[in-house]
Design a protein around this nucleic acid. Structure first.
Length: 376
RNA sequence: GCGGUCGUGGUGAAGUUGGUUAACACACUAGGUUGUGGUCCUAGCAUUGCGCGGGUUCGAGUCCCGUCGAUCGCC
């Protein structure tokens, strides 16, 4: 497809991190970037205007969730997910592979696809590579994902190997079923757990199929950070330089920085918005929990270095009050803040890459943040 | 004035024929949450303390007496 293309503008001489522009049918955005998650065609609590104001490049939505409610036909009838939610920016949908893994019961994986029970009402469902792509074709995001098996960690070599082979066959089937190659970029997803040869094999086979973008999957499923970074290392060297690389489900500050250092272009994660709804905030000085009694009478902004609507207009004392009272505005303001915080992080990262000092930048940020094992 | 019922943490309340660590929930305190179920998880949380003061008993929140308070009924 000619209207989807990654243009690499600079490669950091110090780290090898990349900077570029991703062109999509719904606009061009800069990478590396963090993509807010909008599962049900809404970034929880935020209006489309809010999403634009925080400087978000791409937002994510979910095949599995939209399939169940309201159904892909409704979304198609609305003119695609962008029209449905009245957000005219680049979007991406996950394939449902992860949701089948993470929230469905009674999962049975067969060559044909996966049977499982709905998390909403328990009814039996079936999702296959073809079905996932058909649904994503109807939803209409600019980037769509192959239907993969996201295996748990740890998994045995034997299980992982068989799963990778199946994920590769599924990738091919999805590619064959894809009917909107002209305006939807289908990404292949690299699995392979913590096994170097399986990651290599999976990446190389997907590259042979020539996808317009590649995702690194099977991360952030409970493994430790060193393992996650190793999975990225095992994978990324086999991916083509001129295609976008998306590290799925990763959104902790140190993980994003480590990913960028390794050449990742795109990240998404529920972390900033999920923790925001419960009062946890990412700030330049580290993570704080705004619910704490200590903030009851703290009339300073959440993060004086932040330019978001929340930090410019409100005090910690007010946020503390809102979250204690379970007021929706707390979720909105803190979601705006955490998302803006990560987006600002990527903006600063791009500057550092262009100045060939990304490794220094990474160390400075982590130092100031008070990096620990958890990484926020 | 007479009679009944009741009095356990910040709140609502369990506490069996009197028997070791006063259940549970909410609230509160401190953490967590990584391809989003507006969730969920973890830990802490009654100055040997059960309105107050006596008594019985090896042992009382649980029995007895007094007292204070709440509440209902009757004059």
């Amino acid at each position: 497809m000619e209207n989807f293309k990654l243009e690499i503008t600079h490669i950091c001489k110090q780290s090898g991190a990349r900077c570029g522009i991703l062109h999509t049918p719904h606009g061009s955005v800069q990478v590396p970037m963090f993509m807010p998650v909008g599962t049900l065609a809404t970034v929880k609590y935020l209006s489309p205007d809010d999403i634009k104001k925080i400087g978000s490049g791409v937002i994510l939505s979910n095949t599995y969730h939209l399939w169940l409610r309201p159904g892909e036909d409704i979304v198609a009838k609305a003119g695609g997910v962008q029209n449905f939610m009245n957000y005219q920016g680049p979007m991406l949908t996950d394939s449902g592979g992860f949701q089948v893994f993470s929230l469905a019961d009674s999962r049975k994986i067969k060559e044909e696809g996966v049977t499982f029970k709905s998390h909403l009402d328990g009814r039996a469902l079936f999702l296959s590579p073809e079905k996932s792509i058909q649904i994503q074709n109807k939803i209409g995001a600019d980037m769509i994902m192959s239907f993969d098996e996201c295996i748990p960690y740890p998994a045995t070599y034997e299980y992982t190997k068989n799963s990778v082979e199946r994920t590769l066959r599924w990738a091919k089937r999805g590619q064959d079923a894809h009917e909107r190659k002209h305006d939807q970029a289908l990404f292949g997803i690299v699995q392979g757990g913590d096994f170097e040869d399986l990651r290599k094999h999976c990446a190389q086979e997907l590259v042979k199929m020539d996808f317009p973008g590649y995702s690194i999957g099977g991360t952030s499923v409970g493994e430790d950070k060193a393992t996650m970074y190793r999975m990225v290392d095992y994978t990324i060297k086999y991916l083509p330089e001129d295609k976008p690389r998306y590290l799925m489900g990763v959104g902790a500050v140190n993980d994003i920085l480590e990913g960028i250092a390794r050449g990742v272009d795109m990240f998404d994660c529920v972390l900033p918005t999920r923790i925001a709804r419960h009062g946890s905030c990412m700030t330049s000085k580290g993570r704080i929990n705004i619910k704490k009694a200590a903030y009851k009478d703290d009339f300073s902004p959440l993060d004086p270095n932040c330019d978001c609507e929340c930090c410019k207009n409100h005090t910690k004392a007010y946020l503390n009050h809102l979250i204690r009272c379970n007021e929706g505005l707390a979720g909105r303001l803190l979601s705006i803040h955490n998302l803006r915080f990560l987006i600002q992080l990527t903006e600063k990262a791009r500057i550092a890459i262009n100045e060939d000092r990304f490794l220094d930048f990474k160390d400075e940020i982590l130092e100031e943040y008070g990096f620990d094992e958890r990484g926020f």
